[in-house]
Computed example of a mutant assay.
Amino acid sequence: MSRSRLSHACLLVLPLLHACASSEPVVPEARELLDTVRADAARRSNVAASQVRVLKVDSVTWRDGSLGCPRPGVLATQALVPGWRIQVEAGGHALDYHASRRGGFLACPAGRAQDPLPSGRD
C-alpha cells in the first residue's frame, strides 16, 4: 500500500478506534442531546463538562409526557413518548436524565423516577 493510501486509511480508522477505546457509549443519533446533558450535569455538579462521564444511554419509550419523572400537581400529556434514559457521573455524583427524541430533557431525582415501558413494547 502506498504511503498516501495508508495515511488516508488511518484517517478513516482513527476516529473509529477512538470511539472503541472510549468507555462512554456511542449513540450517534443522540450526540447533540448528550452534549447538552453533559453541560447541564457539569453546571449542577460545579465541574467542567469534560469531567462529566456518560455511563449509559438507553433507547426507551416513556409512558407519558412526564418522561418518567412526574411532578406533583402537574398534568402530563397522555401519549407514549420515544426517548432516552441517560446516566452520567459528574463530580462523584450519579445523575439520571430522562429525555424525549425531540430533545427535551430533565434531571430526574431518584424519588420521582419511573421506569419506561419494558423493551419490545416501544
Rank of each mutant, 00 (worst) to 15 (best):
H98N: 03
L80H: 06
S100D: 11
G104D: 10
G104L: 14
G120D: 13
H98D: 01
K56M: 09
R31S: 13
C10P: 00
D35C: 03
L16R: 12
Q87T: 10
P25T: 08
E89R: 11
Y97N: 02
V27W: 00
L11I: 09
Q114S: 09
C69F: 03
G120L: 12
R53G: 01
E29M: 05
T77N: 01
A41W: 09
L117I: 00
R101L: 14
C69S: 01
D35P: 00
A49S: 11
L80Q: 12
P70L: 05
M1Q: 11
S66W: 00
H8A: 13
G103N: 14
L11N: 10
I86H: 05
Q51V: 01
A41M: 03
A107T: 02
S23P: 00
A42Y: 05
S7T: 02
R31L: 13
R53T: 12
V47E: 06
S45E: 14
Q114K: 15
W84F: 11
D40C: 00
V88S: 09
R85S: 15
R63S: 10
D122H: 07
P109R: 12
Q78P: 00
L16V: 12
P72G: 08
V13N: 04
C10K: 08
P72S: 11
W62R: 06
F105V: 03
H98G: 05
Q78W: 13
H18Q: 12
Q114N: 14
G104I: 02
W62L: 02
H18W: 10
A30W: 04
G73T: 12
S50N: 11
L34Q: 07
S100K: 11
L75M: 06
D58R: 14
D96W: 08
V60S: 05
P72L: 10
Q87K: 14
Q114P: 11
L11W: 12
L34G: 04
R121L: 12
L75K: 03
V74I: 10
L12E: 09
L106I: 09
A76Q: 05
A21Q: 14
P28Q: 04
L12W: 15
S2K: 08
R63K: 15
L14H: 05
L55N: 10
S66Y: 00
V27M: 03
D122A: 07
T77Y: 00
L67V: 00
A90Q: 05
Q78K: 08
D96L: 15
R112G: 05
E29V: 11
Q78R: 05
V54G: 04
G65I: 03
A9D: 07
Q87P: 01
A48Y: 06
S59H: 09
T61F: 02
